[in-house]
Nucleic acid binder design. Sequence first.
RNA 1: GCCGGGGUGGCGAAAUGGCAGACGCGACGGACUUAAAAUCCGUUGACCGCAAGGUUGUGCGGGUUCGAGUCCCGCCCUCGGCACCA
Length: 854
Amino acid sequence: MDEKYFPEKIEEKWQRHWDETGAFEVEDGDARPKFYCLEMLPYPSGFLHMGHVRNYSIGDALAWHKRLNGFNVLHPIGWDSFGQPAEQAAIKRGINPRDWTEENIAHMRGQLKRLGISYDWRREIAAHTPEYYKWDQWFFLKMYERGLVYRRKSQVNWCPKEETVLSNEQSSGGVCWRCGTPVVKKDLDQWFARITDYAEQLLEDMKEIADGWPERVLTMQRNWIGKSEGAYVDFAIQNTDAKVRVFTTRIDTIYGANAVVMAAEHPLLAELLEGSSLKQDVTEFAERVRAAARNRTNASAEEVVKEGVNTGLIAINPFSGESLPVWVANYVLMEYGTGAVMAVPAHDERDFEFAQKYTLPIRQVIAPLTHAEEPSGFDPHLGVDQSTEMKEAFTEYGALVNSGEWSGKPSEDAKREMVQYAVEKNFGEAAITYRLRDWGISRQRFWGAPIPMIYCERCGVVPVPEKDLPVMLPDSAEFKGTGESPLAGVAEFVQTTCPQCDGPARRETDTMDTFVDSSWYFFRYCDPRNEGEPFDKEKIAYWTPVEQYIGGIDHAVMHLLYTRFWTKMMRDIGLVEFNEPVMRLMTQGMVTNQVEGTGEWKRMSKSLGNGVDPDEMIAAYGSDAVRLFILFAAPAENELRWQETGIEGAVRFLRRVYGMVYRWHGRLSDSSPREVAPASEELTIEARALRRKTHQTIARIAQDFEELHFNTSVAALMELSNTLGDFKVGPTEASASDLYAVREALESLVIMLAPFAPHVAEEMWAGLGHAEGLLSEVARWPQANDELARKEELEIPVQVNGKLRSRIHATPDTPEAELRTAALADEKTRSFIDGHEIVKVIIVPRRLVNIVVR
RNA sequence: GCCGGGGUGGCGAAAUGGCAGACGCGACGGACUUAAAAUCCGUUGACCGCAAGGUUGUGCGGGUUCGAGUCCCGCCCUCGGCACCA
């Protein structure tokens, strides 16, 4: 061991050693309990950024901790290596996307190795390799067999900048998830995955992961799925056989309906208007709405002004028999529910606004319940005063009024009974709708997994036979950025023969959304070189589900929803036996840095010029210090403000600990057997205090790791090191029992430091004379001894009326009566209680005494 | 508007209803040095006081409790998500 701490030398040495010995390679079927620690795989953009470093530092801390606690830990890494940037490089600079991607991977792999993250590198995978994307295609075929993927022409979200389709999730908020460009609509033939078939399960199974996932992620997914329970109700159209079906969650308000309002794209519309004098007006309006919708960016939050036109048609309210006008309006969406609604202005804000604009009648049919009018005491015939104009819609539940025989009923009861009535009378039924749409997975890109389908003039759409997989991406294509897949221009790729009739046929030229690759990659890590199937069932049965997943919040809906869906699909085709792939999820916070000039803390980015290069930091301070700082500076979920003085603090700490180990290693490094623990009486007060601190620290950190509170773990290690630094006896004069206490403290410190600063920990472990093996091979996490951790002497605060007034000395065993006597006799306390009547004395054993006086 | 997080020193942050501010950064003072850096020692919520000590303090207003940063009610501010979803 060198006298001084040289991070470069130490880190290079241990990285090489771990690499050569395969220190972090794991096998399944081990007798130890398993632990799958997973970090979101990176896109190989070319350079690691601090967000990656934070992600992997968190994961590695956990992986080390679990390994040292006797778990068989799977900790893999790979590359999400299909995607836009490679293709952009191809378009702009004429570089082959594969070369670009593979160079980036090579560079980033080097960066990860310099960070010293404890991955099992044999399991590294990359999505762009045929060995991987073959299985994307295989899954596609399996899903096709089961009708879980289908093709249809649809209006899709189109990013004009990247010239490609986006799924609903990827165009959330009306902008492209990657580049922020406002999204437009476009009609295209697309492949869709039936995620909507799983809407209910995706909601229901949240129960299984509720304890392990952040509430906000579950909430976001819940909102995204957007379940709402209500009813379909059919409104007959006068003088026709047609019925317009509406969806409502408030059937209890149906007596307040003043119109039926349809979406401009509603298919029934043209049919109903046949021969009508208003047909042209309505058609023109509908066309205008459609055009507006196409051009709308809705990137801005501003609301679209409600507009509508009366169709002249009359609909019959099936409950009241009332005649209602049928309108077409831009605020009714074809994509949701049935594309038609009943307008109840008194009890719906949007209908209220619409009714005001076109001065349509507003009739109140729900009366608010005041305390005096609980449902039981409500007078159904009282009604509400319809003559006073409503200022806004009343959207809450209440009691029905002006609703015929239903008047007087509370909303909840009315809803249930009215649906039942609609069913009996055959004009409606209970219904559940979801906001979730099917997942559009076609992309007009080259750099993705080709969709394994063939279009034959005679046979139609034909899947590629499984034996012909993978459908290989050609080596190159022309990259023009026209919006059509570059594959369409590669004749050898497109032209093929039909697997059914051998006739001429052409291949699908779209590739799959890269979120397909990332939906199942962590299953592949369990069996990464399997050539006959995506993975061996037994292998994944051993390793999955993932115990802990760590990544950014930005994938709260997209990736994390898709992968939950994918798992359920795999379960249904018999590959896995559970519902949820990830038991615990941690969403790390952003890494921010001050922007020069404005001083604002913003996410590090090239364009803002506030990026920090991990390599430079490692070169300057060492990977151990960078990682330690990242985990210490803030709780993992919080924003992390990058401050170089903070890393300097981390280096100082490591140097101090290193110095301490060096100071003692002469006395401790002999490899003779460790002494037997001395009896407490043999130890000096100081040595007992050191052991106490050691065991308190072990206990605290054990708890912190359970909760993933890395920052407080590091703080606890610093406290232990401060206590060690204050230890009065030096190495030369230390007695055998002193040495025992020091060794115990130092070894505990070194082992518990390994998750944060593994290289220097390994070095110090060797310095403490462990001939039997490396820290990473033989060390075991220390166990806390409660007896040793227990304080010998306590300072008990004494409060008078809840205010701290004095302290008394006691031991943990001091009986309550004695604490009481001591507190009341205490001189300082007396000055506050003398002359007052003592009402009560509250004693919390080992914690405090509170004297209540009057 | 709806949903979900948060508001604690100069800063990042700690605190099973029981001594608020652990740990670190920064700042200030001191030692060492010709000097600086590094290192080490000390101080560091605010206010009053020479001091001992006292007062006050966790966004605001109430409440529960012997005792509230923590629990309850009502606000304010802030960050994030969704947003014509019937």
